[in-house]
């Protein structure tokens, strides 16, 4: 018993909205149940069994939203076995419960703390060199990489079930993350260098270019003193923008690329 390709495409589309109904009690449970529902409809003709299957996917679930695609694919892999009577009803649940934590860690470590900051740094350097279109380009490329990996993970999960772990292991994401972080840091240095060269020696540490440095440093100090993450981050960003607007007013111009 297998899920038709068209239905799988619908499931993948729906998994892009995994966090749309995020809630404290079940976290991504509603999003997951919504995404897998077309597949359950295809697998369980009997309404009672279909309802039972949907109910089990309403249990707690939380993972990195991209990596969750692998688990969603794998859960359908297991549901096919359950529908065929080859596995007990809880097989997909055990699979989800086992993988959600470790794959969340992989996703946080790769996407949130490496790939996204890397493309942020690319966008910053690109904006200094080529203006705002570079920011759009960086966003587009980031999302191409994101979408390709997300779709690949979904397909690998569906095709391999438990074997998706070895597929992810072969991607060597932690090693790649280390490289992306180092290169991202280098690009931030390059951005500062460009600012310094444009404004003459010492300019990077005086005037407008110093503002993001001061704002970031203040944010880090606040974090070190136990201030909560979001207030510190938003406070630092707002202070940076405010100071930059003031500085632009006093120096008589905007921040030109």
């Amino acid at each position: 018993m297998t899920v038709p390709r068209r239905t799988m495409a619908r499931v993948f589309w729906r998994c892009l909205f995994l966090q749309a109904a995020w809630n404290r009690r079940g976290m991504q449970n509603l999003g997951f149940a919504y995404a897998i529902e077309p597949a359950l409809r295809a697998l369980y003709a009997d309404p009672a069994r279909r309802e039972e299957a949907l109910a089990r996917h309403l249990r707690f679930f939380n993972c990195h939203p991209y990596m969750a695609a692998a688990i969603l694919g794998g859960a359908i892999h297991h549901e096919e076995q359950v529908a065929a009577g080859a596995e007990p009803g809880g097989a997909a649940l055990d699979y989800k419960a086992t993988l959600q934590g470790p794959l969340a860690a992989v996703g946080d470590g790769f996407f949130w703390t490496a790939l996204r900051p890397f493309f942020g740094a690319v966008a910053a350097v690109g904006a200094l060199v080529a203006g705002w279109p570079a920011i759009v380009a960086a966003l587009v490329v980031y999302n191409l990489v994101h979408a390709a990996l997300r779709l690949g993970l979904f397909r690998a999960g569906y095709a391999r079930g438990d074997g998706v772990v070895s597929v992810i292991a072969r991607l060597s994401l932690p090693r790649l993350a280390g490289w992306l972080r180092a290169t991202g840091a280098l690009l931030c240095g390059v951005a500062l260098g460009i600012l310094a060269l444009r404004g003459g020696p010492g300019a990077a540490l005086a005037g407008v270019p110093a503002i993001p440095l001061v704002a970031a440093a203040a944010g880090y100090l606040a974090l070190g003193r136990g201030v909560r993450l979001l207030p510190a981050a938003y406070g630092a960003a707002a202070a940076g923008v405010g100071m930059a607007a003031l500085a632009a007013r006093f120096t008589g111009g905007g921040i030109h690329p």
Partner: peptide
């Protein structure tokens, strides 16, 4: 439960940073 589950062991090993 994790100790007795090969999938859990494999996944946890996978996510560890260097």
């Amino acid at each position: 439960a994790a100790a007795g589950n090969p999938l859990a062991r494999a996944a946890m090993t996978l996510c560890l940073p260097a």
